[in-house]
Design a protein around this nucleic acid. Structure first.
Lengths: 346, 346
DNA sequence: TTGTAGGCGTTATCAT
DNA sequence: ATGATAACGCCTACAA
């Protein structure tokens, strides 16, 4: 019994529990798997002893034999982007409740995903992968993920957009932006705005192009001239600079639509603190996301809301459905947007 | 050769590489471990084939035999707290560069750590654990972590504080707050502030008590009356409310010291947008952290800086040193603070 | 309900 | 320098 000398230092195995409880190792395994048959009192005994000895089944060993790591890889360019951090937070909570853990990976901030990173990540064998990154072809992703099926965020420009599936299998989260953008444009129009600018996100990103296109479409439908594009990259600092340029070099605008809320904050600060303009009296501002900071008094931003809770539950549903049925055809979830009216339009 | 039917679907093992390269499985293993002896050209061949077939060694299997998961558990109450998200971001990057991945766990936001969570986490066998959580005794943590040694953040109130080590082994990151707080108080005093309030963080948290105590100490040394305590919890909303109470019920203050930057934003917005006071003319405000948002024009906050890069490299150093030498005596790293002067004092 | 045997993919040990 | 063999800790047959 003096085997707890070196090897044991802090590592409790099923075999030890089996010894203490006078049962076989298999019984211990069964005690931790609810859907196996084991006499109730025996299970209780084992679990009690396990708790006393602080034993938990080793997930690495379990993964080896079961093919499930219970790890979900999350790839982000920037954890501290407000929207991303809020989504990671909610996602981690939700996954944890389902018995999964979040494995975080950082990629470069230029929204390009590295093959090296993918290879690195694959070594950890995630059961699923969520990528907050764009410009990765499903084919590339599929090459690096064996059992995981990628989930893409898609922004249909028409609500009845129904393209046929092509290429390797992937699941999809459709975000319908029309409603929110339409409400925003109508509101701006109602307050007399005509010359509307768009302070963009990262140029190549799909979220950005989708937002710009939808804005362009809706404005055309409502008889407005096309938006003036002020190039930016979703960040506070560049949105700030883009706004200065817009007013100093391009003749300004009645209203500004920012590609995200953080960008809208930059727009607001540039207008008020550097250009000496009043919001909403002189210029109206609308953002996109509705992050927690948007209600802060200094900004109090009118914005197109992307419901975080809805989004995360859709994501978790997709992940779990796919895991429970790996051979299912492409899955889809659909999300809506809507305008949250606060103080920057009026 | 038709074994790539079902089992193979997307899973490439060392054995397959060995087959293709006409070598043993062991050779494949060696090819991926730099410090083993293998003829250079053979290693190249193997690595080339591995790359063609998208093979990476399975870390779960590796962990089983090597006892290293290359996983670092991170426990946070709230991923989207600004400071935390920035630290998680930097930490993930740094760890990734060292071959580790970040495993994220969320605990309740009340700063209490759950034994259930610890047991859950242990199942994943992290090599190390960083807890952004307080009120956990080293003993509790140690009970749930076998090979990992916890790292504590310590705030000595005197710079020569040298308590003898007690209890189970743990490493320590000492944060010397005196310099930053002294500079802040001196600056406030220099601008004539005398009645100074402290909008606190979560009451039970060590970071909060340490900041409050240091403030009290420094103010006493400089002949100021003790600070007026306005209870809050590090959040924007409660700091906002605490500021209203302070001015409506407690007679206000010349200057406000907030327990963190986000709290300071709440203070600023309450002062300016609800109480109609000017900052810094009527009231001066100092924060704590220096997060990225603090330089945004709407806030432009004077704050006690906690250098993020320093902090993360100290953390990574501690983790790696401990991993390379599990039996080392308690390790320590020491960090400084300093005042960053912007526009909210003057 | 219970136990025995075998295998998951890798690395360590010991030969050669 | 290389290869056979035995772990690592667990789960899933299969048999009792």
């Amino acid at each position: 019994m003096n085997e707890d000398t070196r090897l044991t230092q802090g590592r409790v195995t099923a075999a030890m529990i089996a010894d203490r409880a006078n049962v076989s190792r298999v019984a211990v395994s069964r005690a931790f798997n609810p859907h196996t048959s084991l006499k109730a009192e025996k299970r209780e005994l084992i679990l009690r002893i396990a708790q006393e000895l602080n034993y938990t089944p080793d997930r690495a060993a379990r993964a080896l034999v079961s093919g499930r790591s219970h790890l979900v890889g999350v790839i982000v360019p920037d954890v501290c982007s407000h929207w991303e951090s809020q989504e990671i937070d909610a996602l981690t909570t939700a996954l944890q409740n389902e018995g999964f853990a979040t494995l975080l990976f950082k990629t470069r901030t230029d929204f390009s995903m590295d093959e090296k990173l993918l290879a690195y990540m694959r070594g950890f064998n995630p059961d699923s992968v969520v990528a907050f990154v764009e410009n990765v072809k499903p084919a590339t992703l599929a090459r690096f993920l064996d059992r995981a099926v990628p989930i893409y965020v898609h922004y249909p420009s028409s609500d009845e957009d129904d393209q046929p599936e092509t290429g390797p299998l992937h699941d999809r989260m459709n975000v319908l932006q029309r409603a929110g953008v339409e409400q925003a444009v109508a509101l701006l129009q109602g307050y007399g705005a005509r010359r509307i600018a768009y302070v963009s996100g990262v140029n190549k990103s799909r979220a950005n192009t989708a937002r710009e296109q939808m804005l362009r479409l809706v404005m055309a439908e409502r008889g407005l001239p096309p938006p003036i594009i002020a190039p930016s990259d979703f960040s506070y600092d560049r949105a700030y600079g883009a706004t200065l340029d817009l007013f100093r070099l391009e003749g300004g605008a009645d209203a500004i639509f920012a590609a995200n809320d953080v960008g809208a904050f930059g727009v607001l600060d540039a207008l008020r603190h550097e250009l000496g303009l009043r919001v909403p009296e002189d210029v109206k501002v609308v953002g996109f996301d509705d992050i927690a900071q948007s209600h802060w008094k200094s900004y109090n931003l009118t914005t197109v809301k992307f419901d975080l809770k809805d989004r995360v539950s859709a994501l978790v549903r997709l992940i779990l459905r796919r895991l429970n049925n790996p051979d299912a055809p492409a899955l889809q979830e659909t999300l809506q947007t809507r305008l949250v009216v606060r103080g920057t339009v009026g």
